[in-house]
């Protein structure tokens, strides 16, 4: 009797002060998070606020002498179901937000009004119902809550448990059937890929961009030994987006190098750069401008 006083309920069926504090803190947090489900623009934010609500519920279960359900709540709901939701959000697209076009005029307001009506109805039911004195679960739980629950589940409710097991298997098979897609094209095996590669002549793979191009960047096409740019070395995506660097510019530079023009352009000797600081810098910029003009010409 004393232990029951200490743990859960007083004789008048009221909760302890600690539980009251826990309840009020969690209740405010949970209602705010549930509001996030209602108002969040992005589906991911809604999912995360629902996680907060579910963890709060787990705390409340433990506080209400139902530790087994508290653990199951965390494992099944926040651990499995919400992760499944997040996976599906990832598949469908994280930025899949609500459409703002109204197919039914005023549907939102009518729906909000209906929700408010439900609040009123439920408040009426909860307010007018007569509750007997709260008994508490100290006697029913006995030694421990999971043991007492197991006696019930595997005793009086064994048949329901079997039915639920059949339901779970059916659901799993149903999910596999629903998400299964029949293959429309023949399967490309590794062997077929390698054969195709040998036949196409690109046995060592496509050339890498930037190699021999004097710019080690993805958007610069590689140059072959003759100095011509290799178009296929740049990623197709960059080419479609128009982000490919101009290959001719780099090819022209290589032409200049090959013709020996590059060596003949005005370049101050190395000793001059070490002796004076300011003058060679201007010379360098002049030379750069000259080479640019040459390239344009």
């Amino acid at each position: 009797m004393l232990s029951s006083l200490a743990t859960s309920l007083t004789d008048a069926g009221r909760t302890t002060t600690g539980e009251a504090i826990l309840f009020w803190v969690l209740a405010i947090v949970m209602v705010l998070a549930a509001g996030g489900l209602l108002f969040a623009r992005k589906a991911v934010h809604a999912a995360l606020s629902l996680v907060v609500v579910m963890i709060g519920l787990a705390f409340l279960y433990v506080a209400q002498d139902a530790p087994f359900l508290g653990v199951v709540q965390v494992v099944v709901y926040t651990g499995a179901i919400m992760m499944l939701f997040l996976f599906v959000l990832m598949l469908v697209g994280v930025d899949a937000s609500d459409t703002l076009t109204e197919t039914l005029r005023g549907q939102r307001w009518v729906a909000a009004l209906a929700g408010l009506g439900l609040v009123v109805v439920l408040a009426g039911v909860v307010g007018r119902a007569h509750y007997g004195p709260a008994v508490g679960l100290t006697d029913a739980n006995g030694a421990s809550n999971p043991v007492a629950l197991a006696r019930l589940v595997f005793g009086s409710y064994a048949f329901a448990l079997e039915a639920v097991g059949a339901l779970l298997i059916t659901a799993a098979i149903g999910a596999i059937m629903l998400t299964h897609r029949r293959r429309m094209t023949p399967r490309v095996t590794q062997r077929a890929r390698s054969t195709a590669r040998v036949l196409s002549g690109t046995l060592a793979g496509k050339p890498v961009p930037g190699v021999y191009a004097r710019h080690n960047a993805m958007d610069v096409p590689a140059l072959d030994p003759q100095g011509r740019p290799i178009e296929e070395s740049v990623s197709r995506v960059l080419r479609v987006r128009g982000q490919e660097a101009d290959a001719r510019e780099y090819a022209a530079r290589i032409d200049r190098v090959l013709s020996g023009d590059w060596a003949n352009t005005v370049r101050p000797p190395l000793t001059a750069t070490s002796e004076t600081s300011s003058a060679p810098a201007t010379d360098d910029s002049d030379a750069a401008e000259k080479s640019d003009e040459e390239a344009k010409a």
Binding site: A34, L38, A111, A112, G115, L116, L118, V119, L122, A123
Partner: peptide
């Protein structure tokens, strides 16, 4: 009851 109503309103809205 409050959480149930919020859930129902979410479904509707």
């Amino acid at each position: 009851a409050i959480l149930f109503s919020i859930g129902a309103t979410t479904v509707l809205v």
